[in-house]
Design a protein around this nucleic acid. Structure first.
Lengths: 248, 248
DNA sequence: TTTCCACTCCCCAGAAATAGCGAGGGAGTC
DNA sequence: GACTCCCTCGCTATTTCTGGGGAGTGGAAA
């Protein structure tokens, strides 16, 4: 078993590895911020940004975009029309901005304004997803011609994916309130009940599936609800899902 | 701008890079299968598995686990009690099996049986999340002592994350129809309704919170239910959550 | 301009879920 | 042996949800 560093990989630490190590050792958002600046200089691009896209609209992240652009972005609620966000949200692989749909009027207007604020014409964004529906994006962007950009994004694709991953790991580390809550676990029967309810069975159907009376089933649902601190069945199922107690 | 391969990275292709390229060029599940075998041999471990954890319970993936174990796993519905799945589901970073909770009786029994089927005592699993609530896992496992394993997993952590990412990219490429219809997204009001229901509000409370009549609210719930192909409100909320349409 | 979609409101009857009581047996732990 | 937790079953009344109709506005896209 390969217990040691691969023999065919050199021991000399590359600049990138040094920066990545710095990221791994960061202990605050400020640390991430300076790493993002170091990475921007290393890659010699205009901007490099990690940000957490939250449904509630509150942004969290770091990067080299100007304060003005960040404020503008939030104020204008660009999150809703930004084709990059839309594209990242429904894809898994890194998204090249060129391949997105910029045809709508709102998108073109957004592109025009963003350029005014110093956002480059070329960009690649990597979607990142964490537990409980966490969603974040890591973006590199700059101004250059298509060929240069093509080569850049192809050469650095793997590294960028890794960097994106590590940024998110750090962000999750700094925002522990979103981290797994150690909650009371459910009994097997309670898990069964919650699971079947989650896939759309009515109480009668669940009881039938489990070959128990509906009264018994109700006891399970109630005790699960109690353990999960839920107000009703739907709430209990939702909590069980978001805590990973049931998988559907 | 770094348009060419980083100067401090050698041009010589490592074995790992060769295998990764092979993965990138795979054009079917069989291709992924052979890559997983190549990787197992390369790392000299017992098993290397990528699998998609699906709502319906039907597994999709590739790897080196025996047919018998895969069948057993599905037949016994181990998905629901496997602590590795539970652990991956609520974490972002790679999960070392040792750090999971194996205290429950079901978990210990599962561990015992898995060993009978050739699953090693050491393992690391990487959670992978895609669009629409897709969830998959990439696992490396083997039998060895803790120190060796510690070194192995530390040395190869970055590579494994990347490999996991690429496996998932391929899987998504091969199974586009498995992704729940992304066409049917929910309208903002429907999202509001589903979200508030998921956090335990009754219909009356939701209607009040959104400042609309309960009748109107019902229209949203019904249309969300229709779009999600759900049988009732609980089901709709569960589906909306598992597809990442709402976050609680 | 027309066509779609999101958003808002209304009625009614039947089905389903919830709240409040209760009971007993079995397995594992301290 | 006492304790806790899990599994199983029962009753009644009230509240809530669901399914079937219909109708009008406004905005954005084709």
């Amino acid at each position: 078993m390969r217990g040691l560093r691969n023999a065919d990989m050199l021991e000399t630490e590359t600049t990138l590895e040094r920066i990545l190590s710095e990221l791994e050792q960061a202990d605050s958002l400020d640390g991430m911020q300076s790493v993002s600046e170091a990475l921007r200089d290393y890659y010699d691009v205009d901007h490099l940004v990690y940000h957490w896209v939250d449904s509630r609209g509150d942004q969290y992240g770091c990067g080299t975009y100007s304060e003005e652009w960040q404020n503008k972005y939030v104020a204008e609620n660009y999150l809703r029309i930004d084709p990059v966000v839309q594209g990242c949200y429904r894809r898994f692989h890194p998204v090249d901005w060129k391949r997105l749909d910029w045809s709508s009027k709102a998108a073109r207007e957004f592109l025009r304004v963003s350029a005014e604020y110093g956002v480059g014409n070329q960009g690649i964004s990597i979607p990142i997803r964490g537990p409980n529906g966490q969603f974040a994006m890591f973006t590199v962007n700059t101004s250059c011609d298509d060929d240069t950009w093509e080569r850049f994004s192809e050469e650095n694709r793997r590294d960028l994916i890794l960097i994106a991953h590590y940024f998110n790991e750090k962000a999750l580390e700094f925002e522990p309130e979103r981290q797994p809550e150690q909650s009371q676990s459910l009994s097997p029967r309670e898990v069964d009940a919650m699971t079947l309810l989650a896939i759309g069975y009515s109480r009668a159907q669940v009881a039938n599936s489990l070959s128990i009376s509906e009264h018994t089933l109700r006891v399970y649902i109630e005790s699960a609800r109690f353990k999960l601190g839920a107000l009703n069945t739907t709430h209990a199922v939702a909590r069980a899902m978001s805590r990973g107690l049931i998988v559907i």
